[in-house]
Simulated scan of single mutants.
Amino acid sequence: MVRTIALLIGAAFVAVLGLALFGTVKTAITEPAAETAAHEFHLKPMDIDLPSAGLFGKFDQRQLQRGFQVYQEVCSACHSLKYVAFRDLKEIGYSDAQIKTIATGWKIEQPSINPDTGEAATRKSLPSDHFPSPFANEIAARAANNNALPPDLSLITKAREDGPNYVHALITGYRDQPAALLQKFPDAKTPDGLHYNPYFANLNIAMPPPLASDGQVQYEDGTKPTVDQMARDVAAFLTWTAEPNLEARHSAGFAALLFLGIFIVLAWGAYQNVWRDVKH
């Protein structure tokens, strides 16, 4: 009796799921979703083939330093890097003295109030500090950015699909809206205060073009600072901030595959040795 009741309950459950699936498929066929401008004109980023990509990828320290220079001179005005400490820059080739100099360029707000001015007390950053936010709080950040909240960039290449390629495409992808888009979707005109970028999810982004022209950053190593080069370099740097142990992970993965390969060969040899005298 109990088994029969359980079978009936299970059959009813399967029937309900089947009806739901049938209804969903029927709706998708008879009432397809309306086309949107974002669906039709959204572009996928191209592969910029960073040195860190692939199974044997490794970081190019000179490129990471150039990318940090772009972040420092351009991106840090709006975006934080709260999961990275100044002393972490030693991993990309900076000396202790250089890190100390870099850290002093940022000020850390103290929880106390300056008794002379009534303002929040500040101090120079130390190498052990994390990169501070350029804004006191979320309200201040939105007020300075047309009510948009600039995301923290520490993990941005992990948080976005096709991370480094997306960062590069987004930075270099600003353009005028195509006439075909406005002809087909006249209501999709980019609102005032926003900027058209086909690599952004809904095509319109609050952030103005951060790299507006070649030469915006003068590289210390003499590399020609084109917009494309600067975008590649900062994408590489943000790949490092998101995955500082990427090279060690690649090495560990290669060692694990090598071990498995040797183990398989030895196991096959042992199998052949144990069963060689067994007649079928």
Results as ranks from 00 to 15, higher is better:
H195V: 14
G18V: 12
I264T: 11
Q177S: 10
V278L: 02
M230W: 14
N145K: 03
M46E: 15
A53K: 11
P111Y: 05
N146D: 11
S80R: 00
K224Y: 09
F200P: 03
L89H: 05
D96Y: 07
A77Q: 14
Q229P: 09
P115C: 01
A15L: 14
P111T: 04
N146C: 05
A235M: 08
R276C: 06
G163N: 05
P132G: 07
L21E: 09
D176M: 11
D187L: 12
A270T: 13
P178A: 03
I99A: 04
I5A: 11
G163D: 05
S154C: 01
V167E: 15
V16M: 06
G173F: 10
I113A: 05
I264N: 01
H280P: 10
L238N: 04
K224D: 15
G105V: 03
V25C: 00
Y94M: 05
N204E: 13
Y71N: 02
N137E: 02
N165Q: 11
K82Y: 09
A141K: 00
A180W: 04
T104W: 07
L155I: 10
K124V: 08
H79V: 02
L153Q: 07
E91L: 02
Y199W: 06
R276Y: 14
D49W: 14
G93S: 02
P127L: 03
F41E: 02
C78H: 07
N245S: 06
